[in-house]
Structure formats: structure tokens, C-alpha cells
Design a protein around this nucleic acid. Structure first.
Length: 824
RNA sequence: GCCGGGAUGGCGGAAUUGGCAGACGCACGGGACUUAAAAUCCCGCGAUAGAAAUAUCGUACCGGUUCAAGCCCGGUUCUCGGCACCA
């Protein structure tokens, strides 16, 4: 053991020893009741780790290493989500191939991860861009297709003019492209979709079976799925042999309907426009709506717009003529794309009716003085009694929903329905660097999957990266030439690639069986490891990745390929790493590079600081002086062990705590063991776990200076301090463990147990309160009952002095804690 | 607008079940060691008054429940995050 703490040398030494000993390699051969699957979200290979990664992976590593020491068979894998646009952009910029850029980035990040001393089973590394992975991605896509869960359809879709590709709804944030911030426009394209809506109810309901997920994430998913129960009502169109159906959650307001609005993109709108007498105006309105970006269209400040079609629908209960308008506030993809306008009870309809001078008919009256339903200044959306509604008058409006629906059902013009905000998942991307969609189009047989024995459909290499126009794959003539698997005639291959979120929707299953070349994964292995017991990653994936992975798992469950229907049992969403109160970013210039910290202080210091500075779910403010503090602490531990090691090396760890100081140290030691155990594997509060160890170290520093030192106790405290710290700062702990004269790796040693008897004190300090205010403290024997405590304290001179001259009204006695004397 | 968090010293944060508010660390101040500096060690560190013992106040704000409230209840302000023309 060197006199000084040389972090670099120690860390490289032990990293090599771990690798040589294959310390973190796991297999399925152990008792399944002791298996634990710990997963951190795999990174995109951007080229460099940032502090967010360091935080994510440090958290995972502490948990993984602790569980390993506790005897669990821990699967702790790592890999790369390595398809995606940045590689393609880099290829265009540097005139190279995305694969070259990606693999060199992975190489560098692998080096960085290994330098942090993370306990991954590197034999299980998964890289989604490799053929051995995307081959099974294609296989799975075809299985989805066979089950009717994949289809191609022409629709107006979100289009990012900058990325030159379509985007899923989930990738449009505030009307802008999630990745580059360019306003998204609409484009009508034929695209592949996955039928996630078929799983909407299960995705929603099963959230209740995830108590280990943050409420916030579950709420976000519930809102995103957006289940809403209502009624579909069919309206006859006047002077036409047509009907139009609307969806409403408020069928109780049917008598208050005074107009109808349809989405300008709705196909049925064409029938209404033609011969309505306003063809020209309607075409213009449609053009105008098409040109607008989503931001403009959904802007809050935007006034309602619309165009009368010249047509009328007939209110099925009043017989009134309802003018039909085109209006862009009606969304095409939700409900039926047509809405009944009830201005008195819907704010949007109110604004529309006000602008176009349409009738406002109140049909729900709360009977409150502050609401005058005859002279509304805004829509009244709350509950009340029915008015102006024929035989339903006087009913509670909530009851009227069922009553009116039942009557309309009798007439065959209504039915109860459920709608979701969730849309099917658009997965086609007009880009090169992704998994090719393994489908070919035959004039005669339509879309057909590539036969299994021809998988994988490889990405072509004869392509040009120009960054302009169509997908680079479309520039490869050889790629597009294919054969129909049914008739053997010429077919055209799909040139779009898959959204990379598909790749990450099942990578956690591939980790269970990463080298399988017969199937995506063996059921046996997946059933051994799944579910993921603990998943750790950023909150930014609350909807996208976590919803898609749940969807995939459910489909695979239905296919019989996995035995669990939810992938992630527990979820921890870690907070961001900030500096100067804002997220680290190049443009702000507040980025702290992990390499730099590792170089100056070592990986252990970086890990310790990041775990100590804040609880994991909270944001973490980076502090350079705080890092130095963590480094100081490690030096302090190192010096302590270095000084004591020669004296205690041959001391048996057998002892009885005799003196008051012995008992104090034994108490500090065992409460640290208890605290760290609970904080690391229970609460995930690594900040309080580390501070408990700091307290123990402080205690040991004072203890060793005493004249009467119990060497067995001190030796035991040294061992256990190193054991407790090992998951946090593994390299220095291996070195100290060796320095203490132990054989083998501390990383493989059993986790220390708490000796509860050391936590039982002979005497306890009791707080004496007068009227709830602390007035004194006294030591009393431990274990006194409520009554005994009261008697002991009340008999003391101290208490008598405090009560002096006042009348005792009541005494509250809390054993082991306090005695509150209420006086007058 | 709707939904969900949060607000504790100069700072990050602790207080696990309603029971000593401020653990641990950072910063700062004082001291020891040193020719000196760094490192290290010791002491102090919520506010006000006081030489001190000590007293009073103090967990965003107002009110309530309780012997006792950072924690529970009602209301308010500020703040962060998510969703948002979903009929």
C-alpha cells in the first residue's frame, strides 16, 4: 500500500484485475429466487459520455454491486442504441459512412465506461446497428405484420423539413421536431404504422399494476393514452342521402347543438362541399389550413376560423337545421373528425358561435346566482339541471347522458364509444441509418414480408449521402429490386427504415440472450431474467420509450415469447445534472467533461460526488468545490486505513464493546451498516448512505486517538467501512481491502450484517419539554415503559425545578424520546 | 386552462411513523503545525439580544387540528415539470 492515495494507478490496476477475473460475468445457472435484473437506459453513441450518463450509471452500479455482495445473481448489461440520424448527418458532413462514425464513437464510449469501473457483463453488449441485432428486429416486425399489428396507410403525417423525415406524434414537441426544433408541417404520405391503439386499454389498465413506478410517469402515460368515454351520434344531412357521425362526451347537451363543424381534411368534407354553393371559399379554406404549421394552428391566441359549406345537418332531437362548417379546430385523427357545436357548454364552440353569430342555447343550469345561463359571457361547462331539453328537463345532466343515449340507441342512431388520444405509431423514416423494413411490394400480391431465410435485409452500401431529397437508400437501384415471395415476379423493396425507438423497445430482452442466432432470444433465458427488477434512466423517456417498450412486451407476451406482460417492475427516473442552475450544454458553455474529472481526481471521486450531492430523482447542481470535498473524504479514508493497517492486520475481528467509547463506536458502526443497507437497496438515497459512512469515519478518527483502544473493534470497523464503501467507490476499496491483509476481491465479499444488539443503548437521552418547548435533557436507563419514564423524570430535581410553582395539567410520555409536561 | 412535484441556513441537502429543526458536505471565520505556503488537525458557523449562561424568534405566507406540526387539514403566493382546440 502506497503512503499516498494515487487514484489513477489504483483504478487502472483493479479494473484490469476485475476484467481478468471476469468478475461480472453472469449466467442463468443459479437459483432464480436470487436473480436480479438491473438495467440502465443504454446510450446513443454520440461519441462522449456526459455527466448525465455518469449519474445514471453510477446509480445503477452502486445498486448492482451491493446486490452482488448480498448474494444476488445480478444481470447488469450495457449496450448502444446505435442507429439514428446524428450518424447520418456526421456522414454527410465528414464524407464518411455512418457505420464508421458509429463504431469509433462506441469504441471511445466503451473506454470511458470501463474507466468509470462500472460492473457490466460486457460479454452481453448489444449494439442495435449490427446485423445480428437488426436481423431479429426485422423478424419481429414481420411477426407484428402477421398478427395484423403492422400496416401501411396514406395519411397526413408530421414532417420535419430539416430532418427530411416523418415523425411520430410522440416526437413532435410544441409543434416542433423533438430533435432539431424545426416547426413540423403536414405531408400526405403512405407510411408504415404499428397498431399500438389496439393495446391502449391494456397499456392504461396495467399501469395500476406498477406500484414501483413514479406516479408522475404513470400520470403522463395516462394522459398520453387519453381514454375518454362518450357517445357517437349520427346526424342526417338535409337534402342529401348522407349522414355524418360525431363523437361527444356530452350527449346531454344535444338539445343545445346549434351548428356542426368538420375538419377541413376530412374526406367526407368533399361530399359536403360539392354542390353546397360555397365550393370556392371552402377550397381556399382547405388550402389555408394545409399551409399552416401545427404551432400556428394550435396557437392559443389564434381566433377561431371556419367556412360555411352551404349544407345543414338535422338535430335528431329538435329537428333544427344545423349549418355545417369547415373549421381547423376540429382534429382529423380524433373521434370522427366531426363535432356537434354546443356553444353554451363548450368554450371552443362558444368562441366559434360568437364569431359567426350562431345561436347559443343553454341546456344545463346550475341554479346558481353567479351563473346566468341566458346571458353567458363564456361557456358553462360544469354540472347542473337540464333545461330546454323536452322530456329531460329537470334531470341532473349527468343522468341525462345515459338517458338520452339510451333513447337514441333505440332509434339506432347512437352508440357508446371510447376514444383515445393515442394514435397508431408511425414507424417509417425516410432515412438511411436505421433498420430496413423487411417488406416488398408486388403489383399482384401487394405488400409481402421478406422470407425468413432471406433475413436480414441488409442496408445497401452503394448509396450517396447528400443530405438532400429522398432517402439515401432510394439512390441504390440494386436494393430496390426484389422478388415477390408468392409469385416470384418482380417486386419493389421498401426503402424506408424503422424508427429507432423500435430497436430500443426490446433490447432488454436481447441482453438475456445476446448471442442467439436462431431466434431473437430464448424463452427459457428471458423467463429466468425478466422482468427487469429495476430500470434507471431519464424522465425524458417517460412516454416514448417506456410506452413503446410496454407495448412490445405485451405483444410478445401474446405471442407466447415472454411470460411477463410488463417489462419494468420498478422504475427510477434520475434528475438532470446542472451547472449554474441550467442544464449543461455546449451553447451555454457550462459543460463539465467526465474525462477531465476522472483525470484530475479519479473515477471514484466522480462517482462519490455525484451520488452524495443530491438524491437521485432530484436535479443535481454540479459543484467544483463539492468534488474536491469528496476527494478529500477519500483521502481521509485512505489515510485512516493506511495508518491502522499495520497494527490490525493480524488482529482477530472478535471483541466485546466494554467502555462507553467502545459502545459508541459499535453503535456508529452498526447504525451505518443498517442505514447504508436500507438506503442503497430500499430508498435509493445514496446521499444519506454516504453521509452515514462519513459519520462513521469521523467517529473512527476520534476513537483511534483514545488511550484505551479495543483493537478487535477498530479492526472490524475498518473492514466494514471498506465493505460499505465498496459499491460507491470500488477501486479504492479493493486497494484498502488488500492493504488490510485480506485475500480476494472486496467486490465479491459478503455484505456486512447489522448487529442489532449494538444498537441497544444502556441509557438514552430524553428531552424534557414544558408546554411543548425543550427545557432540558436527561439520561435515563434505556427500555423504560411509558409509566416508568414519567415516574423517573418527574422524580428528578431537574423536572421539579422546571415545574416549580406551576400546576401540572398533563404529562405526555414518549418512551425513548421525550417527556412533555403541560403546566398552567 | 388542466394535471403533478416543490419551497428548510450563505449553498447542496438531512430530519424514514406527528416527538430535540438544520445530520453530512461545501463555503466562510478563528486557531494549531510550518521560515512560508499547500496539505492536515482542532474550534465556531440560522436570526436577534447578551461578555456569557441564556432568552426570544425561526422550515414561502395566512389560518386550523394537537400536549407537540417542516411533516396532518383549509386557503394563498411563488416556482419547476408535463399536457393542452382531444369535442
Amino acid at each position: 500500500m502506497n503512503e499516498r492515495y494515487y487514484a489513477q494507478a489504483i483504478e487502472l490496476k483493479w479494473q484490469k484485475k476485475w476484467a481478468d477475473a471476469e468478475l461480472f460475468k453472469v449466467s442463468e445457472d443459479k437459483d432464480r429466487s436470487k436473480k436480479y435484473y438491473l438495467l440502465e437506459m443504454f446510450p446513443y453513441p454520440s461519441g462522449n459520455l456526459h455527466m448525465g450518463h455518469v449519474r445514471n450509471y453510477s446509480i445503477g452500479d452502486v445498486v448492482s454491486r451491493t446486490l452482488k455482495m448480498q448474494g444476488y445473481n445480478v444481470l447488469h448489461p450495457m449496450g448502444y442504441d446505435s442507429f439514428g440520424l446524428p450518424a447520418e448527418n456526421a456522414a454527410i458532413k465528414h464524407n464518411t459512412h455512418p457505420a464508421v462514425w458509429t463504431s469509433s464513437n462506441i469504441e471511445n464510449m466503451n473506454k470511458q465506461l470501463k474507466r468509470l469501473g462500472l460492473s457490466y457483463d460486457w460479454d452481453r453488449e448489444v449494439q442495435t446497428y449490427r446485423e445480428d441485432y437488426y436481423r431479429w428486429m426485422q423478424w419481429l416486425f414481420i411477426e407484428f405484420w402477421k398478427r395484423g399489428l403492422a400496416y401501411k396507410k396514406e395519411n397526413p403525417v408530421n414532417w420535419c423539413p430539416s430532418c427530411q423525415t416523418v415523425l411520430a406524434n410522440e416526437q413532435v414537441v410544441d409543434g416542433k421536431c423533438e430533435r432539431c426544433g424545426t416547426p413540423v408541417t403536414k405531408k400526405k404520405l403512405s407510411q408504415w404504422y404499428l397498431k399500438i391503439t389496439e393495446y391502449a386499454d391494456r397499456l392504461l389498465d396495467d399501469l395500476d399494476e406498477l406500484p414501483g413506478w413514479p406516479e408522475k410517469v404513470k400520470t403522463m402515460q395516462r394522459n398520453w393514452i387519453g381514454r375518454s368515454e362518450g357517445t357517437e351520434v349520427e346526424f342526417r344531412i338535409k337534402d342529401m342521402d348522407e349522414t355524418v357521425t360525431v363523437f361527444t362526451t356530452r350527449v346531454d347537451t344535444l338539445f343545445g347543438t346549434s351548428f356542426m363543424v368538420v375538419s377541413p381534411e376530412l374526406e367526407f368534407a368533399e361530399k359536403l362541399i360539392e354542390g353546397g354553393g360555397y365550393e370556392k371559399e371552402c377550397r381556399e379554406y382547405q388550402e389555408q389550413a394545409k399551409r399552416m404549421s401545427d404551432i400556428e394552428r394550435t396557437s392559443l391566441t389564434k381566433e377561431k376560423t371556419g367556412q360555411f359549406t352551404g349544407r345543414y345537418a338535422v338535430n335528431p332531437v329538435t329537428g333544427a337545421d344545423l349549418p355545417i362548417y369547415l373549421a381547423d379546430y376540429v382534429l382529423l385523427g380524433y373521434g370522427t373528425g366531426a363535432v356537434m357545436g354546443v356553444p353554451a357548454h363548450d368554450q371552443r364552440d362558444f368562441e366559434f358561435a360568437t364569431k359567426f353569430g350562431l345561436d347559443i342555447i343553454p341546456v344545463v343550469d346550475p341554479g346558481r346566482e353567479d351563473v346566468d345561463v341566458e346571458h353567458l359571457t363564456q361557456a358553462f361547462e360544469a354540472e347542473g339541471k337540464m333545461i330546454n331539453s323536452g322530456k329531460y328537463n329537470g334531470m341532473d345532466n349527468e343522468d341525462a347522458i345515459a338517458a338520452i343515449r339510451a333513447d337514441l340507441e333505440q332509434r339506432g342512431i347512437a352508440k357508446k364509444t371510447v376514444n383515445y388520444k393515442l394514435r397508431d405509431w408511425l414507424i417509417s423514416r425516410q432515412r438511411y441509418w436505421g433498420c430496413p423494413i423487411p417488406m416488398v411490394y408486388c403489383e399482384e400480391h401487394g405488400w409481402q414480408p421478406v422470407p425468413e431465410d432471406q433475413l436480414p435485409v441488409l442496408l445497401p452500401t452503394d448509396v450517396e449521402f447528400t443530405g438532400k431529397g429522398e432517402s439515401p437508400i432510394a439512390t441504390s437501384p440494386s436494393f430496390q429490386n426484389a422478388v415477390c415471395p408468392i409469385c416470384g415476379k418482380h417486386a419493389v423493396r421498401e426503402v424506408d427504415t424503422m424508427d429507432t425507438f423500435l430497436d430500443s423497445s426490446w433490447y432488454f430482452l436481447r441482453y438475456c440472450d445476446p448471442h442467439n442466432d436462431k431466434e431473437p432470444f430464448s424463452k427459457e433465458k428471458v423467463d429466468y431474467w425478466m422482468n427487469v427488477d429495476q430500470y434507471i434512466g431519464g424522465i425524458e423517456h417517460a412516454i416514448l420509450h417506456l410506452l413503446y417498450s410496454r407495448f412490445f412486451t405485451k405483444v410478445l407476451y401474446d405471442m407466447g415469447m415472454v411470460s411477463c406482460s410488463e417489462p419494468f417492475k420498478n422504475l427510477l427516473t434520475q434528475g438532470m445534472v446542472l451547472k449554474g442552475g441550467t442544464k449543461m450544454s455546449k451553447s451555454v458553455g457550462n459543460v463539465v467533461s467526465p474525462d477531465e474529472i476522472v483525470e484530475r481526481f479519479g473515477a471514484d471521486t466522480a462517482r462519490l460526488f455525484i451520488l452524495f450531492a443530491a438524491p437521485p430523482e432530484k436535479e443535481l447542481e454540479w459543484s467544483d468545490t463539492g468534488v474536491e470535498g469528496s476527494y478529500r473524504f477519500l483521502n481521509r479514508v485512505y489515510r485512516l486505513i493506511y495508518e491502522l493497517a499495520p497494527q490490525i492486520e493480524n488482529i482477530p475481528r472478535v471483541y466485546t464493546a466494554e467502555t462507553k467509547e467502545d459502545k459508541q463506536l459499535a453503535f456508529a458502526l452498526n447504525s451505518a451498516v443498517k442505514r447504508v443497507t436500507g438506503d442503497v437497496t430500499g430508498r435509493f438515497n445514496f446521499n444519506t448512505a454516504t453521509s452515514a459512512i462519513m459519520e462513521l469515519v469521523n467517529e473512527m478518527y476520534s476513537y483511534k486517538e483514545l488511550e484505551d483502544v479495543n483493537m478487535g473493534l477498530l479492526a472490524d470497523a475498518c473492514d466494514k467501512t471498506v465493505l460499505l464503501l465498496a459499491p460507491f467507490v470500488p477501486h479504492i476499496c479493493e486497494e484498502l481491502w488488500e492493504g488490510l491483509g485480506h485475500e480476494g476481491f472486496v467486490s465479491e465479499h459478503a455484505w456486512p450484517e447489522c448487529d442489532e444488539s449494538a444498537l441497544v443503548k444502556d441509557t438514552v437521552e430524553i428531552v424534557v419539554q414544558i408546554n411543548g418547548k425543550v427545557r432540558g435533557r436527561m439520561d435515563v436507563p434505556a427500555g423504560l415503559s411509558r409509566e416508568e419514564l414519567q415516574e423517573t423524570v418527574m422524580a428528578s430535581d431537574e423536572a421539579k425545578a422546571l415545574i416549580d410553582g406551576k400546576t401540572v395539567v398533563k404529562v405526555i410520555s414518549v418512551p425513548g424520546k421525550l417527556l412533555n409536561i403541560v403546566v398552567r
